[in-house]
Design a protein around this nucleic acid. Structure first.
Lengths: 149, 149
DNA sequence: TTCAGTGCAAAAACTTTGCAGGAGG
DNA sequence: CCTCCTGCAAAGTTTTTGCACTGAA
């Protein structure tokens, strides 16, 4: 078992009387945590199929949603019309800079963002459960894959 | 003509040698500026069709993209898998609070957000062109359409 | 035993593309 | 007259749904 702690967390989450513990769900969990960076639900499904899994699309979509609900994954939207996910397991909160030239995504953490979210939610009487903060622009200099002088 | 200033702006934008000024484009512009709040490209297309317009889907999608490029519209993503737009015409920059219970979207403006975007872009060597900042949560009290005691 | 979960396939929702004809500059 | 734009329809992409069967509790 590759991710015993995550399995344990997920199992706890499922044992609420409304969900069942199934091997398929843990198979999806393992694949999800193995992903590097951000991935889409369909990409994960296709990868599992390539590895001869018997999983169905519906189960992958269903399970990924559960994993996001129990905070093992984060849901992201980077201005495309698809949902992306990324592992939260052993990672701290962060936000994203997206280069509109080369598509690369840089990450940053800042308590200033979290403070601002709390402050604004309070001011406007809003019971905050999450946020999404993306900065779009261009990497400067040679760090950009499509940099041109 | 309902929006002469916007027509003028759009016309200026189009006259760059790469684009053409067509009546269809201004028809889409008028419908877009008439929308209240956020709307999707397909919604706009369907509304135009209901009003017996001869417009095609391709033209609506194409034109809306142009209107976003010249800043008459803003592109938004609220965690769904579709692009939403909203009029920028005579409006100032703002961000959004999205109630995950009732779906209502509140708006707020804060220079603190813009300052933070600039600050972080500078710190990380990033040539900022835009950002997206959404806060998710629940309206408190009776302001929420699905509020329950 | 019971009902949530599964696999499969079809449908749905949104967007993009290919093509032939038409019109802007 | 040369492209770019248009309408239409088809196809693409991602996600959701319906259904009969299976297996967890």
């Amino acid at each position: 078992m590759k991710y015993p702690k995550a399995h344990e967390e997920f199992k706890e989450f499922l044992k609420d009387g409304k969900h069942r513990v199934t091997p398929e769900r843990f198979e999806v969990l393992d694949y999800a945590l193995d992903q590097k960076g951000h991935f889409g639900a369909d990409e994960l499904y296709i990868e599992m199929k390539k590895n001869d899994s018997n999983i169905s699309r519906a189960t992958v979509y269903n399970t990924i949603e559960l994993l996001a609900n129990c905070d093992l994954l984060s849901k992201r939207h980077f201005g495309e019309n698809k949902t992306r996910y990324e592992s939260n397991f052993n990672r701290k909160n962060h936000d994203h800079l997206i280069c509109t030239n080369c598509g690369k995504i840089k990450e940053f953490s800042s308590t200033r963002v979290e403070d601002l979210v709390k402050q604004i939610s309070d001011e406007l009487g809003f019971d905050n459960t999450g946020y999404s903060f993306n900065i779009f622009g261009k990497c400067t200099d040679r760090s950009c894959d499509k940099y041109e002088d």
